[in-house]
Amino acid sequence: MPLSLDDDELETVMSAAVPIRPRDRDQFLRAVTSELAKHVEIGPGIVGRVVAKIQR
């Protein structure tokens, strides 16, 4: 099932990717997407927590 984020949630993910080296961004985005896919409902809180977890 495709992952659907609203504009604010997408901005959260993309902003978190900015400081990551360009060659590592794809891996980061795939990890975030994979983790978000585990959740039935996605909202700003889940997105923020997942991004923070993956950034570590």
Rank of each mutant, 00 (worst) to 15 (best):
M1S: 08
P2M: 11
L3N: 15
L3Y: 13
S4L: 12
L5T: 07
L5Y: 12
L5C: 09
D6Y: 12
D6V: 04
D6Q: 05
D7A: 13
D7H: 05
D8G: 06
E9H: 11
L10Y: 11
L10N: 09
L10K: 10
L10S: 14
E11R: 15
E11Y: 13
T12P: 03
T12V: 14
V13Y: 08
V13L: 10
V13P: 00
M14L: 14
M14Y: 10
S15M: 14
A16Q: 06
A16W: 11
A16S: 14
A16P: 03
V18L: 07
V18I: 05
V18P: 11
P19W: 01
R21P: 13
P22M: 01
P22S: 10
R23P: 02
D24C: 07
D24L: 10
D26F: 08
D26S: 03
D26R: 15
D26Y: 03
D26H: 07
Q27P: 00
F28D: 00
L29G: 12
L29I: 04
R30P: 00
A31V: 07
V32N: 14
T33G: 09
T33E: 15
T33D: 05
A37H: 07
A37M: 10
K38N: 06
K38P: 02
H39G: 01
H39P: 12
V40I: 09
V40L: 04
E41S: 11
I42R: 03
G45E: 01
I46T: 15
I46S: 00
V47L: 14
G48V: 13
G48H: 04
R49H: 06
V50L: 00
V51N: 03
A52M: 13
A52L: 15
A52G: 13
K53H: 09
K53L: 08
I54D: 05
I54W: 04
I54R: 13
I54G: 01
Q55L: 09
R56K: 03
